[in-house]
Design a protein around this nucleic acid. Structure first.
Length: 310
DNA sequence: GCGCAAATAT
DNA sequence: CATATTTGCG
């Protein structure tokens, strides 16, 4: 019976494919991640968006989504944009109304998406970093609370591991950890996250006020693409053999292979292999580069410097 | 609704 | 096998 479901989900994101314009083209959101409190603290307004490369004023707000289709309306993150979009878009002669209970394909957490996740949590503060809020802040259509909750759970475990290792031993870490969790390792971990004390409140700003930030939330165009991934996730490393594990990172990193060429029809090579890949706008954060990184001059290794210096 | 551990699915 | 989703409990 699973097969039937596959078909359903197939057409399900079939519309999505149309909806996605292009990773480069979409990047409506920018200062959305900057909490008003923070902005006020710095006395910066829209124009003073830190780097200046993120000028909301300059930002051509996507007045008209690439897809006129009813499926992509401003979708308030508060409600399930999914259902509404589905129901609205449905009706193609059809027969697929029950988008309400449809199970969507597995979400592929790309480094980009995870980055956005981390940024959202970072700017929200541990205090308000709850699935629902995070989801809203991310404003990624198609992203559900469950998705975030699940990911958040894993992420917390990841941080916990980091924390434990860094505090108790003091020995080398990152290496092993990075190797363990590729996804999490791909994104920088905000210093704020590494709260070794029971009480976490290191952040000078960001007391709260999620709603303010959310008021301006706009639907971030999410892109999904289904490529030959299917084989990728089957890509189980052939263990039992060594030597060829040089890179080992055959993982489909950045799959944002969404070049200018119009999206070609996705071929459903293998039924039942539907992957959902959300690609949030690249810009997003103005201070996304606040990463300490260059602590050393020569070492440009991808080693994460997440040790609690203080 | 949130968090977590375990089970389950792909 | 890795990863994401779902389930059960507090």
């Amino acid at each position: 019976m699973r097969e039937e479901e596959e078909e359903e989900e197939n057409n399900w994101f079939a519309r999505w494919e149309e909806q996605l314009p292009s990773p480069e083209e979409l990047m409506p959101l920018s200062q959305t991640l900057i909490t008003p409190e923070l902005a006020l603290a710095f006395d910066i307004t829209a124009a003073g968006a830190a780097n200046g490369n993120l000028n909301p004023a300059l930002f051509p707000q996507p007045p008209a989504p690439p897809q006129p289709a009813a499926c992509s309306h401003p979708a308030p993150p508060l409600s399930s944009d999914f259902e509404s979009s589905a129901s609205a878009a449905a009706g193609s002669g059809g027969g697929d109304e029950p988008a309400r209970t449809l199970k969507r394909p597995r979400l592929v957490w790309t480094p980009q998406l995870h980055k956005r996740f981390v940024d959202a949590v970072a700017h929200l503060g541990i205090k308000n970093a709850v699935p629902k809020t995070i989801m809203q802040l991310m404003s990624v259509d198609g992203l559900t609370r469950e998705n975030v909750a699940s990911h958040l759970q894993k992420y917390r475990l990841y941080l916990k591991r980091m924390q434990g290792l860094s505090t108790s031993g003091g020995g080398p870490i990152s290496a092993a950890d990075a190797a363990t969790d590729q996804l999490f390792a791909s994104a920088p971990v905000p210093h704020q996250f590494l709260s070794r004390g029971p009480a976490a409140g290191p952040e000078p700003f960001l007391p709260y006020v999620p709603t303010a930030a959310l008021q301006h939330q706009q639907q971030i165009t999410a892109a999904m693409q289904q490529q030959q991934h299917q084989q990728q996730y089957y890509h189980q490393r052939h263990l039992g053999h060594f030597g060829s594990s040089t890179g080992g990172f055959d993982h489909g990193f950045l799959n944002r292979g969404m070049p200018q060429p119009a999206m070609h029809q996705m071929v459903g090579p293998a039924p039942g292999t539907g992957f959902l890949q959300l690609t949030p706008p690249p810009a997003a954060l103005s201070v996304d580069d606040l990463e300490p990184a260059r602590r050393e001059d020569g070492s440009e290794r991808k080693v994460l410097t997440l040790f609690p210096d203080r």
